[in-house]
Every structure is written in C-alpha cells, then in structure tokens.
Amino acid sequence: MYRDAIGKRSPKVKNVVERGLVRRFAESIGDLHPIYVDEETGKNSRYGNNIAPPTFPRVFLSGNIEGLKLPGKGLIHGEQIYHYERPLLVEEEVFCYSVIEDYYEKEGSTGKMGFLKMKRYGEDANGKLIFTEESVIIITETVRRAMQV
C-alpha cells in the first residue's frame, strides 16, 4: 500500500541541537554525562564542545513527505539504525530530510504485515553528511484494514 511512495522525500528542515534539550534528553535516558551537559568538559574535550547522545536525532524535524499518511495508532517500531560520520555538536545547525527507502509485505501469523523503511539524513550547513537514521515501521493487518475503511 506504500509501494508507490518508495523514493519520495521530504524537504530539508533546519534544526538546532539545543543545549537545554540535550540536557533533558540525556537525563531522560539516565545519561547525564559531563560531555553532554558540562560546558567546561565540552570545551576541553577533543570536540571543543559538548556533544549529543547518539539517539538524539529522534527529536529533529525533517518535514513531511507529500502524500504519505501513516496511521496514528498501532504502528510497531521494528528496527532502528544510526550511522555517524562524527558526533553531533551542541548548538550546531543540522539540516534534515527523510526518504522512503522501501516498502514490502510479509505473511505473518496474524496476517499480512507491511514493513516501511524510512531513512533520515542530517547534514551540516555545507551539505556534508553528519548522520543517517533508519527506521523500520511494521504495519499489522489489523491496522491496514482499519485504514482502508
């Protein structure tokens, strides 16, 4: 049902790695390490700045993909894959966009399941890649049916 959407992408959206949000995020995963939150530690580190935890891009916006409608409920998060060229620096600007990488269906014990693979790219102001974030979302038969009603 999402096969036509493969290859579609969102516009680029500017995000800022906000200091306060990095602190709150680090705290929420029980990782208030000085490299994330203490300015002095950041300054004296090899990065010359504080960095953000690897799963932080979860908070970034990357714009809507035209025509893509996802159900609000019942989705299952199957997989998550990050790749980094370098860690994210606190207060830097990151330009994000998403692409629908793939969609396929498999027969499971509860009926046909859809697998939607999305990939998000995060670049610096010069268009140089910082990270990618891939998510595999599973859409169960029940949810698929509800959507077609």
């Binding site: 995963i29 990782d31 490299i35 935890p53 799963t55 894959i81 990050y82 860690p87």
Partner: peptide
C-alpha cells in the same frame, strides 16, 4: 537510548559510528 550510555565514558577515544 539507555543502552548507548555504556559507551559514553569513552568519548575521548572514539564514538559510536554505527548503532
């Protein structure tokens, strides 16, 4: 997110490139 903190103390010698 919690799992990644096993690696946080080692930011001076490297970083998580793939997760």
């Amino acid at each position: 997110g919690n799992l990644s903190k096993l690696f946080t103390p080692y930011y001076e010698i490297g970083f998580i490139q793939d997760y």
